[in-house]
Design a protein around this nucleic acid. Structure first.
Length: 293
DNA sequence: AATGATCTCAACCGCGAGCAG
DNA sequence: GCTGCTCGCGGTTGAGATCAT
């Protein structure tokens, strides 16, 4: 779709996947596991680029993906996580079992940002729109329309125009979280090496099949990642009823240095806080700040 | 029923991190 | 330390679906 193919992809099939392609990819991954995306399409008999295969698998074909019907609980969690992590969709998705970063990103852009806006909250800063508007009006000479009017006007504009008008409304897009995105759910298995189960896996079935599993997050990386973000982590047991993470259920793998325990407790405590209702938000923010020092 | 506007989401792209040589 | 390769991430696009007139 969309843009012109880059030169290396000339001759490859693009656009929506056919059932046959899905089957080929699924069978190949079931037999050989994930990874080696670059060489996979040829081996699997697909006329696709490796990126496309990876994306299709990650976002659509891999087992245990929940589709649609994002629950109010998940809604709430996404909003909270976004307020802490910003647009780090893979991190957010990592904390919502069965959800993909692409799905959450789409859901945010199409539903949650509008929802927040309609509630008078700036979806970028998670502050009240009135505050943002005040800041904006100080920098910018009066634009007479209210934010609501802006939204209505936007409806009649093309999408590109729409995003431009939003950009005008928010002259300085504040990122909630500054650190650049880093890889978090990739566990690099040395090439030509077999799967090592000394990892945390989202799916025991997948691990059993020996695939280089999606969402395998090495403990040390989680700790590091958590330290960077000032947030808890997703591992271990899920709350089966809600599909949400139960921070109290996770176990620390034996290879984790014991020196990390204090940090680990802090994060666990923080993540439990994250699941608490709205009124604890202020304390939560303070706690997050303290972790980021 | 026809047409245009708007919305949704699967898929694409470029960039940058991490690893191997 | 440098370079090239691979992979993962976030932003963006546009076809198809849905809604409004």
């Amino acid at each position: 779709m969309g843009r012109a193919p880059c030169c290396s992809k000339v001759g490859l099939h693009r656009g929506p996947w056919t059932p046959r392609e899905d089957t080929l990819l699924t069978k190949y991954i079931q037999a050989h596991g994930e990874g080696h995306w670059r060489s996979m399409p040829k081996r699997a008999g697909l006329l696709r680029c490796g990126k496309s295969c990876r994306l299709r698998w990650m976002n659509y074909l891999r087992p245990n993906i929940k589709r649609g019907n994002i629950s109010p609980d998940e809604d709430d969690l996404i909003i909270r996580l976004h307020s802490l992590l910003g647009n780090r969709w893979s991190l957010i998705a990592g904390r919502l079992p069965g959800r993909t970063d692409n799905e959450i990103k789409n859901y945010w852009n199409t539903h949650l940002s509008k929802k927040l806006r309609s509630q008078g909250t700036d979806p970028n800063t998670h502050k009240k729109l009135s505050e943002t508007a005040q800041l904006g009006s100080k920098r910018k000479n009066n634009s007479s329309s209210s934010s609501n009017n802006n939204n209505n006007n936007n409806k009649s504009k093309s999408r590109k125009q729409k995003s431009k008008s939003i950009a005008n409304l928010e002259p300085e897009k504040q990122k909630v979280h500054l650190p650049k995105a880093t890889r978090v759910n990739s566990f690099r298995i040395p090439r030509n090496e077999s799967f090592d189960c000394n990892t945390i896996s989202g799916s025991s079935d997948q691990a059993r099949e020996g695939s280089k599993v999606v969402n395998i997050i090495p403990w040390s990386e989680l700790i590091k990642d958590s330290a960077e973000n000032g947030i808890g982590f997703l591992v271990g047991g899920h709350d089966q009823d809600h599909g949400l993470v139960n921070g109290s259920n996770f176990e620390c793998p034996s290879h984790i240095p014991t020196g990390e325990n204090t940090l680990e407790k802090l994060y666990e405590e923080y993540f439990l806080e994250l699941l608490k209702p709205e009124e604890s938000q202020v304390e939560l923010d303070a706690f997050a700040e303290s972790l980021l020092i």
